[in-house]
Design a protein around this nucleic acid. Structure first.
Lengths: 147, 147
DNA sequence: GTCGGTGCAAATGCTTTGCATTGAT
DNA sequence: ATCAATGCAAAGCATTTGCACCGAC
């Protein structure tokens, strides 16, 4: 059973402690499952992954746990589809560029320093106080076969 | 009564004709109102604007008309908030940049042709088939007083 | 025994849809 | 008369919440 990397786990545990909740085996399994999705996912898909890994969760619990992970900064919500929320393991820096295939959910974080400068410029030129940016570049990934 | 620019109107009328519907005064007013929002808006806000301009619309009609405008390519849906759909006058290229104040929820769609080129470049340099991009620039909006 | 965890079902809130009425040609 | 537009209320759907029961310390 591969464990998620320490930092994620620590982040989650710290948050749970801060709000007076416990790091239960259930929640550990959910974190584990989220980490092993390896791509953006919906709550539904996370629930399926939990079942596959043994020991599912009710809809209510799944949603509650996902929210906890978002609050903890372990997951971030990404907006691809108006109807269903998608999540992924957080990039952690609040800003980021992500190549994203809307169909498969596959993601690839990329970097481009020039973009952050441009974004900052756009904000200031409108008189806004720049904080950060998030870019989703929608694209079809090369070959769906080779995950 | 300021009319929306011809191209938008033409786009809308053409689509309506294509699907066998009419360009009624009601729809003209809705297009007009959407154009004059001058910012991203929710369906609710569009309904309020319609009331202000005289002659509101029922929830059902408002939603239906917004959908028609999206289908026509006059509006595009922007994904900022999971709970409510936001729309704005289409930039035409399926991509969009939005200034977003996380605290107030205020949004301002902006344009920057250079960015789409950069994003396209990023996607292709990774071997992905570019579709579009979405940029959220987080920033604090200026105080409303000095608008 | 006290707290929090969980699941079920009911509630929410945005959005869509069914249906009867209304209006235009 | 026909065909589409409109409004109301009901339906849909993802998500949240109320509540009762269960388990750990």
């Amino acid at each position: 059973m591969t464990q998620p990397p320490g930092p994620l786990c620590a982040l989650f545990r710290r948050h749970l402690r801060d709000v007076g909740l416990k790091y239960t085996p259930e929640r550990a399994r959910t974190l584990d499952a989220a980490f092993h999705m390896g791509r953006a996912f919906e709550v539904d898909e996370l629930m399926q992954e939990l079942v596959v890994r043994g020991g599912g969760a009710s809809k209510a619990t799944a949603y509650r746990t996902v929210r906890l992970m978002v609050d903890a900064g372990v997951l971030e919500q990404i907006l691809i589809d108006k109807d269903r929320a998608h999540y992924r393991i957080s990039t952690g820096d609040g800003s980021g560029i992500t190549l994203l295939d809307p169909e498969t959910g596959k993601m690839l974080p990329v970097d481009d320093p020039a973009l952050s400068e441009i974004c900052r410029g756009i904000a200031t030129s409108h008189g806004w106080n720049y904080r950060g940016f998030r870019i989703h570049i929608m694209a079809s990934s090369p070959t769906p076969d080779q995950s």
